[in-house]
Amino acid sequence: MSAATAPFRQMGSDRIDPLLVVLWIVLIVLALIWIAPAVFIVSTSLKSTQDVMGGGAFAPPTKVYWQNYASAWERGRFSTTFLNSVIVTFVKVPIGLAFSAMAAYALSRIKLPYGKGFLALFVFGTMLPFQVMLAPLFSVVNGIGAINTFIGLWLPYIAFGVPYQVFILHGFFKEVPEELSEAAIVDGASHFTIFRQVFLPISLPVLAALFILDFVATWNEFAMALVILLNNRNWTLPLALMGFQGEFGSDYGPLNAAIVTTVVPAVVVYLIFQRYFVGGLTAGAVKG
């Protein structure tokens, strides 16, 4: 039911539909309400404490107060935590995705004993709430001596990222026509080669979608990092934001600057790769 028609017209009609105009206005108002928190946060992040306490909620700052960002950056030690988040995300996402793609290939193109069972096991994991297992996760990671290390965070991150990716990629790989890989098989290529030279290239759009989705999820993850990264030198941005709120919660300007700093990378990535993002999200949920 995609509307290729001109604005404000019902499908198959060329008259302007007054109800649609009303609807449009309602939507605009609703969108303004929806975006208001973001506007409020950004505007507070540019206000001095006096402005925050004195002026109205949406009053523009009397003087743009960029110092809040410098102050938040320094006091929240965001240079360290930002870098930590970058390391955690940019190591975890590619490795996790590679492992998922490998597993998805094996489960979709190679006959393995209990292959269907393994697939079911992964699918089961797509909905498993890790929030329930924070304590055992802590003790498992502590058991291998990896508390306070990125390895200790990457492993559970991968463990809980793999199921959804395997599920999506398995569905995709299964649909790849056999002819594509037959030639390679005749040439005696191994599965490793076929996977790398045939399947990876054709699945780039799916991989990109999953990459973006996983990037945002990993960047935003809080609960697991909370139990595994105890030392604030290892903190990722969400932990640093929480710590900042606890320590400097009444310095409203810097607090909001800290929020903006934490949120912006994920938002920028989303805005740039919007198409992939929504694609990756809906691919698994609604096959329509």
């Binding site: 058991g143 291998i144 001596g145 990896a146 290390t149 390895i151 200790g152 492993l155």
Partner: peptide, 14 residues
């Protein structure tokens, strides 16, 4: 896997 991860983690301890 756990053993390897543990070894890696141990390396990071001074």
């Amino acid at each position: 896997t756990i053993a390897i991860a543990g070894a890696l983690a141990a390396l990071t301890t001074a």
